[in-house]
Computed example of a mutant assay.
Amino acid sequence: MLDRVEIHPGVFRSSGYGSMVYRGTAEALVAAGVVEQSELPGQPGNPKTMCTFTPDGRRAGRGTGNYCGAEPGRKRIFKDRNGFTVDVQLSLDLIAAAEAAKARLQACWPFPLVGGMAFLQGNA
């Protein structure tokens, strides 16, 4: 993905549709504060490969009585052979702001140079 950024050693963030997606090992994601150790799939009381948590931190899914759909703050955590993927749902306001920022950047590509430095329109 073009917008993949390392936000903490071993933790990469990219944008999904309406969400932020974090990838990394269990240790790196916990150290970065993206998840808690107890939220990871495979921990006692959690399914082995995928967990969903409501914005208030309760586990959602089959048999829990909690449903959270696409509420802002909902976390889905997937385990694969390379580590974990955490998908955090954004609010509609944050989605709109991210799309507007992306559109502004695309509108002024390539960046005009002013005095030898990249100049972003609207950020003067």
Rank of each mutant, 00 (worst) to 15 (best):
L113N: 04
A100E: 02
F111L: 14
L105V: 15
P110T: 01
G116L: 02
V5T: 13
A100V: 06
D93T: 00
F84H: 10
A103K: 09
G61F: 09
G18Y: 05
R4N: 05
T64Q: 05
A97R: 00
K75H: 03
A98N: 09
F111C: 13
T25A: 09
L94I: 03
Q37G: 07
L113D: 06
Q43M: 06
A124V: 02
R59Y: 05
E99W: 11
P44F: 09
G16A: 08
R81N: 10
G122C: 13
S14V: 14
Q43G: 03
A103I: 05
E36A: 11
G83Q: 10
G16H: 04
V34A: 07
I77C: 07
G63I: 03
N46I: 07
P112T: 08
G16Y: 06
V11S: 01
E27C: 08
M20L: 15
V30K: 13
V86I: 14
R23M: 09
G122D: 04
A26L: 04
N82E: 08
V21K: 01
C108P: 03
L120P: 01
S91F: 08
K48F: 10
A103P: 04
A60F: 13
Q121T: 14
W109A: 06
V11A: 05
V114N: 14
D80H: 15
C51Y: 07
E99M: 12
E71Y: 12
N82R: 12
G115K: 11
Y22S: 04
G61M: 09
A28L: 02
G45K: 02
R81W: 14
K79C: 05
L40V: 00
P110W: 06
V21E: 00
V30Y: 09
H8S: 12
G73P: 04
T25R: 13
M1Q: 07
M1A: 11
D3E: 05
S15W: 06
I7K: 03
G45H: 00
R13P: 04
R76F: 14
A118E: 11
A124P: 12
D80K: 13
D80R: 12
V86S: 00
Y22C: 12
R4Y: 03
D87L: 14
T64A: 14
A101Y: 05
P110D: 03
E6F: 11
P44K: 00
L94N: 09
T85P: 04
W109R: 01
A70E: 15
R13F: 08
L2S: 11
L90Q: 14
E71A: 13
Y67S: 08
L90H: 10
L90F: 01
T85D: 04
C108F: 02
A28V: 07
G69Y: 14
C51H: 00
A101I: 15
T25Q: 13
K102V: 02
E6V: 11
A97D: 04
A60P: 00
Q121H: 09
M50F: 10
E39T: 00
T85E: 04
A70C: 10
S19E: 10
N123G: 12
C51T: 15
V34P: 04
